[in-house]
C-alpha cells in the first residue's frame, strides 16, 4: 500500500481517495432519497383526513432541544476531525464521544416526541399527513441511530489500532455522514416544524 505523506492521512492512499469519492456519491443518492421524502411530505401535508394538523401537534421545546443538540454535535465532530489531522488521538476520541453522546441525546428527545405524537392521536396510521411526518422523521432518526453504532465501531478501532490511514479514512467518512444528517435536520426544522407552526 503506497502512502502519500504530503496528503492528510485520510486521503493518503489511493484506496482511501476512492472511498471518500464513493461516499460523496452515496450522499448524492441520500439527497435524492430525502428529496423524495420531502416532496411526498409537501404533497401530503394538508391531507390530514380526520387526524390533527401539524400546528395542532408540534411542540416547540423538544424541537428546539433536538436542533440545538444536533447542530452542536456537528460542530464537535468537526473539532474531532481537526484533532485527528493534528494527530491528537486522545482529543479526537473525546470529541467523537461527545458527538455520539449528543446524538444519543437527540434520539432520546425524538423518542419522547414520537410518544407525544402517539399520545395526542397522531400515530402513523391516522392520516396521510401523520404517515409521512413520522416516516420522514423516522428515516432521519434511523440514520442517526445507525450513525451511533457506526461511530462506536470506529471509536473502538481508533482506540485499538491508532490513527492509521484506514482508521482516519473511516472517521473522516463518518464525519461526512454526520454533517449530512445535520443538513437534513435543518431542512426538517425549517420546512416541517417552522412552516407547520406558522
Amino acid at each position: 500500500m503506497k502512502i502519500d505523506h504530503s496528503l492528510p492521512s485520510e486521503y493518503s492512499t489511493e484506496e482511501n481517495q476512492l472511498k471518500i469519492l464513493g461516499f460523496w456519491i452515496f450522499l448524492g443518492a441520500e439527497i435524492a432519497l430525502f428529496a423524495t421524502l420531502f416532496a411526498t411530505y409537501f404533497t401530503l401535508v394538508d391531507r390530514t383526513g380526520n387526524g390533527p394538523t401539524g400546528s395542532e401537534i408540534f411542540e416547540l421545546s423538544p424541537v428546539l432541544i433536538e436542533t440545538f443538540v444536533l447542530l452542536t454535535s456537528s460542530f464537535t465532530i468537526g473539532l474531532g476531525i481537526h484533532a485527528m489531522r493534528l494527530g491528537n488521538k486522545k482529543a479526537m476520541m473525546s470529541f467523537f464521544i461527545i458527538t455520539l453522546l449528543l446524538g444519543a441525546g437527540f434520539l432520546a428527545v425524538e423518542v419522547y416526541e414520537f410518544i407525544h405524537y402517539v399520545h395526542v392521536g397522531a400515530g402513523i396510521q391516522v392520516s396521510a399527513f401523520t404517515s409521512i411526518l413520522l416516516t420522514l422523521l423516522g428515516t432521519h432518526g434511523a440514520h442517526v441511530t445507525l450513525g451511533l453504532f457506526w461511530g462506536i465501531m470506529i471509536l473502538i478501532q481508533v482506540k485499538k489500532r491508532g490513527l492509521t490511514p484506514e482508521t482516519t479514512n473511516k472517521s473522516f467518512i463518518f464525519s461526512l455522514y454526520w454533517h449530512f444528517l445535520d443538513v437534513v435536520w435543518i431542512f426538517i426544522f425549517s420546512f416541517v416544524y417552522l412552516k407547520g407552526m406558522m
Partner: peptide, 26 residues
Amino acid sequence: PVLTVALALMTMDRLFGTNFFTMANG
C-alpha cells in the same frame, strides 16, 4: 432512491397500515 422510497411507502401501506396511497384518511 426514488424507487427505494416508493417501495418502502408501499410496504408500509401494505404491512403497517399507513395511509400514503390509500383512498381514505387523506
